[in-house]
């Protein structure tokens, strides 16, 4: 009974989130808006590859970068989007305090909002993969795909994405107008630190531990390994499939626990500092 009620509230939050995300435009314009950014990134990567195809010595690695970039859409839409939801509710619409004290509660509300973001991220990722498959020749051998490992990878990766979303939401609760900067910075920082479009071995040695502590670094490497049949990182290539998957699950689990603890701590801090109804932006 309690679960049914929670799902009903989440569904309401998802519906509200959909309205907030999309009701500024008619469906056609919204669709164009939604696909414009991921499509442009895909085409940029393709143009970079096309420009260097005749001279590049490691061109075969491109498929791995492209596929990881497609799945990075989840991080851009879900993780940063959940942080933005808190920021917008407080600073722009000035409704965060009402959501917070409502029987629904902020956690259920954010989970509902994240579902809309998940759908949008899925559409972006699928579109990028389709463009890659049909227009850019980024393909894989279906016989080489490891479906069980890949399915576990996807579930764990999406779980880590949700966890990171709650972590950023907590941070956005405490920060004032600077939350906007932090959210944008996180999006770009993760793009660099997780080795989405290059192997993390190319990062400076002192940055690599941070990269390995992030679940998305492992997630993208697992997707490359279990979908395309080859990873990109020389270090991670020394691990067997089971070891790589195990390492990813361990990092994702640790990250999920840490994210939840940080979210709870930030929630308390935001109440202590009186940040839930403090508008500093407009």
């Amino acid at each position: 009974m309690a679960m049914t009620g929670t799902f009903a509230r989440m569904r309401t939050a998802a519906w509200l989130g959909w309205q907030v995300e999309s009701n500024w435009a008619d469906p056609v314009i919204f669709f164009i808006y939604m696909i414009a950014r991921p499509l442009a990134v895909s085409l940029t990567l393709a143009a970079m590859y096309a420009a260097t195809r005749s001279t590049a010595t490691e061109g075969a690695a491109f498929a791995g970068f492209y596929v990881a970039n497609a799945f990075h859409a989840y991080v851009n839409t879900m993780v940063v989007g959940m942080g933005w939801a808190v920021f917008e509710e407080r600073e722009e619409f000035e409704t965060l305090k009402y959501v917070y004290v409502s029987p629904m509660g902020l956690v259920t509300y954010l989970a509902g909002r994240s579902f809309v973001r998940f759908v949008l991220g899925s559409i972006s990722a699928l579109l990028m993969l389709l463009v890659g498959w049909f227009a850019l020749g980024v393909r894989w051998e279906w016989s080489g795909v490891q479906p069980v490992f890949l399915a576990i990878t996807m579930v764990a990766g999406l779980g880590a994405t949700l966890s990171a979303g709650f972590l950023l939401s907590g941070v956005a609760m405490v920060l004032t107008r600077s939350a906007m900067t932090v959210l944008e910075g996180t999006m770009l920082g993760l793009y660099l630190m997780c080795g989405v479009i290059f192997p993390v071995d190319l990062l400076p040695v002192w940055l690599r531990p941070l990269s390995y502590a992030l679940p998305f670094t492992w997630w993208y490497e697992c997707i490359r390994r279990f979908l395309l049949g080859r990873g990109s990182s020389a270090y991670m290539n020394t691990l067997s499939d089971a070891q790589l998957l195990g390492a990813m699950l361990a990092v994702c689990a640790a990250f999920a626990v840490l994210s939840w603890l940080v979210y709870r701590a930030m929630d308390r801090l935001a109440r202590t500092l009186g940040r839930l109804d403090q508008t500093t932006m407009f």
């Binding site: 970079m48 260097t52 061109g59 479009i197």
Partner: peptide, 12 residues
């Protein structure tokens, strides 16, 4: 990130 990608591809 984009510079690193060129480096990873072995581009000039």
């Amino acid at each position: 990130a984009f510079v690193m990608m060129y480096r990873a591809l072995g581009a000039p």
